[in-house]
Design a protein around this nucleic acid. Structure first.
Lengths: 166, 166
DNA sequence: GAAGATTGATCATTCAATCTTT
DNA sequence: AAAGATTGAATGATCAATCTTC
């Protein structure tokens, strides 16, 4: 084992800048949403996924996959949203294990009220700052990284460079 | 008030791709750190900041600023890290309100053990996927957005496009 | 046994209130 | 009063265990 290949100055700067931007952007969007509505970013994403569906309803496991959330997190979160009247849970006729999660009229009102300012903020803080070539470049960058992340997610254990019976 | 300017397909794709990448990358780094050490990403960032200092110590408020954390979050987190023996708290001689947070020998061992694989993972999942021009482009993009975020953070209330006495 | 989902315990983060020193 | 920091309560997220149905 030779020494670690540490980051160059350029790499370190880029990495730290990315991390700072990413956390601050999320925080800013969350603050805006909280200020202008009674929704958190997490609530918003749940509701967006439900409104994307023709009947405003989705199987819970599909929602978990779409959000990339653990089923436990989803279950707890939906419990809270249910108590607030934003979603309903109904049973699935074809698979008795399953549940449908459905947006309520109140949930619809909430997201319809919150969405315009949220989108405006995404524009104001992010998209409108960047030229369309930059937006496209960013998408390519993110797709490249995502691709690698999803390869890796399949492995149980990897990336050590060690193989048994080398 | 005219209708909201929704996102174009290109914008929507780019935005969703960015959000997915960003959350999945953070999750992957956190999992790797947890698997190979006893540190969370938050622990790691605290320790990095302390080891950046000549004596491994920092005023708590400076740490809060460097991490961009609320003072309350920092206080709770440092309490837990203190119980685990990763940091110490000592009083500040020149300002009796203040405290110094200091990395312990054990904290140093922990981060020195965790850092190589963490850096390797940042490379493997992120930096090494992108050409150096892409890394540079990403840094510019992030700086542009950060710039806007930090302007906005100063305002109490803004971005509505409404001005008094218009 | 595996898939879909829930629960309870624990840990992490936020919010408001507090305390001391400047 | 403002700055530096801590505390306790409430909310949110994770982990392991469980339960039912396939």
């Amino acid at each position: 084992m030779t020494g670690t290949q540490w980051l160059t100055d350029d790499e370190q700067r880029a990495w730290r800048t990315y991390v700072a931007m990413s956390t601050e952007l999320t925080a800013a969007l969350g603050r805006q949403l909280a200020a202008d509505s009674a929704l958190s970013l997490a609530d918003f994403e749940v509701l967006v996924n439900l409104t994307d569906q023709p009947n405003g309803r989705m199987r819970a496991f599909a929602l978990a996959k779409a959000l990339d959330w653990e089923k436990s997190r989803l279950s707890h979160h939906l419990g809270r949203m249910r108590r607030r009247g934003l979603v309903n849970r109904t049973e699935c006729p074809v698979d008795a294990r399953g549940s449908f999660i459905e947006i309520t009229a109140e949930g619809r009102r909430a997201i319809e009220h919150a969405a315009p300012k949220h989108v405006e903020t995404v524009r104001e803080l992010f998209l409108d700052r960047l030229g369309s070539e930059q937006v496209a470049a960013l998408e390519r960058i993110c797709l490249t990284v995502l691709d690698r992340l999803r390869i890796r997610a399949g492995d149980d254990r990897c990336g050590t460079g060690m193989t048994p019976f080398g």
